[in-house]
Design a protein around this nucleic acid. Structure first.
Lengths: 201, 201
DNA sequence: GCGTTAATTTAGGAGGCGCTACATAATTCT
DNA sequence: AGAATTATGTAGCGCCTCCTAAATTAACGC
């Protein structure tokens, strides 16, 4: 039984074949982690959802943290905000950041079954390893923002980035606490206006 | 029920006397909960810190949630932001809210061993009962803000309150994630300027 | 001293957690 | 066909969680 949508993955390996697709399993786990947070999802929640037994899980992912690392990886590829596309040089820094915050609101508030940001929420969990893994992605994102702002507003880069990050954390929290997409968008726009004020020429 | 701050702690009661002061125990638990969050503090963490055994704990507080309710109560009395003092009628709404946010930054960032807001962080925990208990205090605070704004800016009350709350959640998160007091204050002031802009006459 | 009351200590139950030892099944290579 | 390899299912380990039953101790009123 081959599961991969294949056409490329025919390199049969020795031994008994897997009965599940790890990448698809990561997607299922990602939904669980996004919906409930790292701490609130147990390994047996995941194995139950996948219809597999613990040994299969540990053979494939090594540990709960190992799975989470894979989830973050996948999220960065097709779930996270496309910073590079938003932080463009052909518009003002303030405009880009306002769009970024609106995009964050949309990402966090569109799907009530996965409210908030997987990475942001991950930085707040109670497992040191998982937290640090999420933090690495968070720091990378904030660095990207800071570098972008610094190109044209070096003196304001640090404080503006802190404000943007603080707002994103607030939006993620409030998304998880029930704020609607409209509420999140309104808050994001308000924060955007503050940035415009600070970065006015 | 002795041990109340009754200076004449003489109201003896029948039965074996307690070896610990419940109110002081709540204060110790409050430090733990504030430092690590509800989920990350176990009952045995608390009993160890107090030097008592579980039955004494459960006789006094009923449950972990029962203790947490007492902690929130105490925090509301002498730990939380004094909303009533800040939301005054003799200054502009925008000014009051800016001061409120600065005060939040100070509350969240002054003590690194108790970063963030106990109530705000409580609304994000994984225990339904504790979360709802914290949420009640959070809702009360936001209602107070909304009512205050509505007195002079009824049309903006909802969105401005959402923005203030979102900012406070962001500040609390970032305080816990290591932002310094100065960073928090700068972000709070930036948010304050957005409010001033929105509520300009 | 005696009975009542209430907090204490000791000991542990029920259940969940992340994780694994072990034997077995399914596949490929020789 | 048989060896090698790898995933599987069963079963459960060790630890931690919140919480409690039972016996004991320290105060009271009489």
């Amino acid at each position: 039984m081959n599961f991969v949508a294949d056409s490329t993955k025919k390199s049969r390996v020795r031994g008994r074949p897997r009965r599940f697709d790890p990448e698809q399993a990561v997607a299922v786990a990602r939904e669980l982690f996004h919906a409930r947070g790292y701490d609130a999802v147990s390994v047996s929640d995941v194995t139950d959802a996948l219809g597999i037994n613990p040994p299969s899980f540990y053979a494939a992912f090594g540990s709960k943290q190992g799975l989470y690392a894979r989830v973050l990886e996948q999220y960065a590829v097709d779930g996270a905000i496309p910073y590079a596309d938003i932080l463009r040089e052909d518009r003002s820094v303030a405009e880009s950041l306002a769009i970024l915050l609106e995009e964050a609101a949309r990402h966090y508030g569109t799907n009530p079954a996965a409210a908030g940001c997987l990475v942001v929420e991950g930085t707040r969990c109670n497992d040191v390893g998982a937290r640090d893994a999420a933090l690495a992605y968070n720091i990378a994102a904030e660095t990207q923002i800071r570098d972008y702002v610094a190109m044209r507003h070096p003196e304001a880069a640090a404080s503006v980035t802190d404000f943007v990050a603080t707002t994103m954390f607030g939006l993620s929290s409030k998304a998880r606490n029930g704020h609607s997409l409209d509420q999140l968008l309104a808050s994001a726009r308000m924060a955007g206006s503050a940035i415009e004020f600070v970065l006015r020429e």
